[in-house]
């Protein structure tokens, strides 16, 4: 296990690189997902409201 983490002495470079990918892609994915949920919920609520008014 410690051998795996050490990455043959290149641990700082390799794990930093993988962390950058994990943080950026997860962040972008989560932000996009939450924004989609919020906007679609608001748009659906509006449509339901207009239908009720008619």
């Amino acid at each position: 296990m410690s051998g795996f983490l050490a990455m043959g002495g290149y641990a700082p470079y390799i794990w930093t690189a993988y962390a950058v990918v994990a943080v950026w892609l997860t962040g972008l994915g989560l932000v996009s997902w939450r924004r989609m949920r919020q906007l679609e919920a608001a748009a659906d609520a509006l449509r339901a409201q207009r239908r009720a008014e008619r």
């Binding site: 994915g29 996009s32 997902w33 924004r35 989609m36 906007l39 679609e40 608001a42 748009a43």
Partner: peptide, 8 residues
Amino acid sequence: MRMRADLA
């Protein structure tokens, strides 16, 4: 996801 958000 981003296209759906933009359309909404």
